[in-house]
Design a binder for these strands. Structure first.
Lengths: 172, 172
DNA sequence: ATTTTATTGTAAGGGCACCTGATTAAATTT
DNA sequence: AAATTTAATCAGGTGCCCTTACAATAAAAT
């Protein structure tokens, strides 16, 4: 049974981290091409990530993997097409399907943008980095459990797969 | 000079944390009153937090402190009024100004909602909690520095003040 | 060959966080 | 008293994520 005060301290720091990071992100992207603003956790970003792991998926496949409706998927894909991050192309095998592929700049966005090691990790020592990694590993698996035990059990595998694949990919 | 591999590991975990937490949050709030969904870092949430630290501010004051336009502020305040989280009242001293105050439920939201210790901290030992707190302290102050050294130096004090006041407030 | 099912697309709408521009009303300057 | 500055508002717009409803096309099943 962990100490409540210690938990509160950590929780406070975590909130502070979220807030201050949000502010810092805003500043960093303030005048950049507005493309890079979106979070990689949802909408268009999610699609980019899924494609960077597995290019040439159909819209349906994307929707299934990312737990989005077909319509949302279509919307995001179209937006990405407009930004030249992705291309659409009718499948020759099944002419109902549309195959989505990353463009060069799309691939670049999906990888470089998310694989950037944040500046703030520079202030940590090797030991602290190890501690942080080990702590986050615990936290993450606890969160996976939470997702797993929810009423959307399938969501578990989906998110875990996409996320882990992505992470594994870029840091190996 | 820290080990790059260790940095990448930590960065990966951090990204994973962000993603999986986002998914978990979505599940948790899937059918809840839609009120609690918003992040406390922006928009309406920001205003709630600022007021919980310092109730009875004018709209102008809020806009200044939170670095929002008067119009955005008005919009968020009006939305909060509709949700009964906040009240508007003309100042008697300067009848141009509108004083914004938290209602009881507004105050409750601002405090309880954000002072909830997340479940996932339960999986950490006391020692790990201390480590996490100390690591986040370093990271946060590094982020504050980054904000401070940006081209919007005033934003630094604003955000730091609002954030720190809020954190200090609820966990003491 | 006709019905059913799958994949996409289109239309419309809701909620969110912002923003600019123009206007009103009250206070302050001159 | 007249001009100006200030606080707030109205109108309208952008972009984001996400939903429901419906139509079109192509493949699969009967």
């Amino acid at each position: 049974m962990p100490n409540l005060l210690k938990q509160k301290n950590a929780a406070g720091k975590l909130i502070e981290f979220g807030m201050v990071r949000h502010v810092a992100d805003n500043i960093a992207h303030r005048d950049s091409d507005n493309v890079e603003r979106q979070s990689m956790f949802q909408g268009q970003g999610k699609i980019l990530i899924a494609l960077s792991q597995n290019d040439g998926l159909s819209q349906k496949e994307l929707a299934t993997r990312l737990d989005l409706t077909a319509q949302s998927t279509a919307e995001f894909v179209n937006k990405l097409v407009k930004k030249n991050l992705v291309t659409k192309e009718k499948s020759t095998k099944d002419r109902r399907m549309t195959i989505i592929r990353l463009t060069d700049s799309g691939r670049k966005m999906a990888t470089t943008e998310s694989s950037k090691v944040p500046e703030f990790l520079n202030v940590l020592s090797d030991e602290e980095l190890d501690q942080l990694t080990s702590i986050l590993t615990k936290i993450n698996s606890s969160l996976y459990d939470e997702i797993n035990n929810s009423d959307q059990p399938t969501l578990f595998e989906k998110s875990q797969q996409v996320i882990k694949d992505h992470i594994r990919d870029w840091f190996l």
